[in-house]
Each structure stands twice: as C-alpha cells, then as structure tokens.
Design a protein around this nucleic acid. Sequence first.
DNA 1: ATTCTAACA
DNA 2: TGTTAGCA
Length: 123
Amino acid sequence: MTLVARFTVGGMRIGELAEQAGTSARALRYYEQQGLLSARRTSNGYREYDEEDLRLVREIRALLEIGFNLEDTRPFVECIREGHSSGAECPGSVEVLTRRLAEIDDYIVRLRRIRATIVKELG
DNA sequence: ATTCTAACA
DNA sequence: TGTTAGCA
C-alpha cells in the first residue's frame, strides 16, 4: 500500500469492496447471485470491482439499514444502472418507497395503541 | 495472504 | 448471513 500505487486506480477485489461498503464478502457474493451486482473476473478467477460497484453496494446497504429487504433494492439498483444519479428517480423505486411508508405508518398506529394500553395499565 | 465454490456440528 | 473446508 505505497503512496503511489494506492490511488483509487484499477479495481478492487471482494475483500476491499466489502470493507469500504461496510459489509462482508459473503454478502457481496450473495447479491451477485441475486443479480444485484455484476462481477468481472480477472485471469485467476477473482472478482474485480470498481468505484461504480462501490456506489451500488453502498446504495444497497443504505436501503437495507432503513429496513428494506434485498428484493426492495432491485429497482434502485436498476435505476442507477440506467444512468440516474439517484436510485430513487425511477417509478419502480418510488413504488417501493411508497409501500414502505405505508407500512411504517401502520406500524406507528400499532405502537400508539400498544402504548395507550400500557399507560392505562399504569393507571 | 486472499479469493473461490459449496455446504452446514 | 456466518463459518468452514479444500483449492488455486
């Protein structure tokens, strides 16, 4: 990792991508199996990724952390692949976002009711 | 040392 | 998703 050779040049292998995206190599291989991530291979068979892949994985991670499942991230991934700077700029993404919002609202209502009954129990 | 695939005391 | 095995 010399000062010169370490400059965001070529590509990175699965280990580095995982580290920079805050996930595991295992998860990245799984995303690939699910068709969410594309992998180019080097002569030795190792997967090679670039900055674009890093952006994509970070997008996926961000969505997962907000409560979406892997399938929910698909439209966002495709959206970015189609050139959009934001994965939320496509109809498919908007639909997923809207559905999640409704789920959250329902959840809030449930929690409020639970809270109310607990307050009663306390007298 | 790192990645690969496949599979699970 | 983690972990591990046996290779390259």
